[in-house]
C-alpha cells in the first residue's frame, strides 16, 4: 500500500500516463469506485458493463477500485458519494455517482451522447 506520504490534495489526481494522449482516445479509461460488495456496487458494475458493451465495445477499460482496501484513493479522487464512476479520459474528469441505473444520464455524464 503506498502509504508513505499522502498529502491532502486539493484537486483530483490526474493520471500522468494518460494526460498527454489525444482528446478522442481509442480506449476509455473508466474507474468505478465502490466500498465492498454492496448491492449498489454490484448493481453499478453490472449497469456499467451493459452500457459499455453497448456503446464502447472494445474501446473501454473498467477498473474497479474498492476503497475499503485503498481508502486513501478516496481522498485523491475526491470521492464522497459511492458508487462513483470516474471518467478520466477524455478530459475533463467527470464523476458519475449512483448505481448507474439511469442510462441516459450516465451517457450525458460521460459525454458519450455526441459521440454516438
Amino acid at each position: 500500500m503506498p502509504k508513505a506520504k499522502t498529502p491532502t490534495r486539493l484537486r483530483p489526481r490526474k493520471l500522468k500516463a494518460v494526460t498527454s494522449k489525444p482528446k478522442n482516445p481509442d480506449v476509455w479509461k473508466l474507474r468505478l469506485f465502490v466500498a465492498g460488495q454492496t448491492s449498489k456496487s454490484i448493481r453499478a458494475f453490472a449497469n456499467l458493463k451493459v452500457l459499455c458493451e453497448e456503446h464502447l465495445k472494445g474501446r473501454y477499460q473498467i477498473e474497479v477500485i474498492d476503497l475499503l482496501e485503498n481508502p486513501h484513493l478516496a481522498r485523491g479522487n475526491q470521492i464522497v458519494a459511492l458508487p462513483a464512476l470516474v471518467v478520466n479520459l477524455p478530459q475533463p474528469v467527470r464523476q458519475i455517482i449512483g448505481d448507474l441505473s439511469d442510462t441516459d444520464r450516465v451517457l450525458v455524464g460521460m459525454a458519450l451522447q455526441k459521440i454516438i
Partner: peptide
C-alpha cells in the same frame, strides 16, 4: 463535475 445516476450513499466520505 458530478452527475447522479441513481441511488448512492456517502460511503466515500
Amino acid at each position: 463535475e458530478i452527475a447522479e445516476t441513481g441511488e448512492y450513499d456517502l460511503d466515500g466520505l
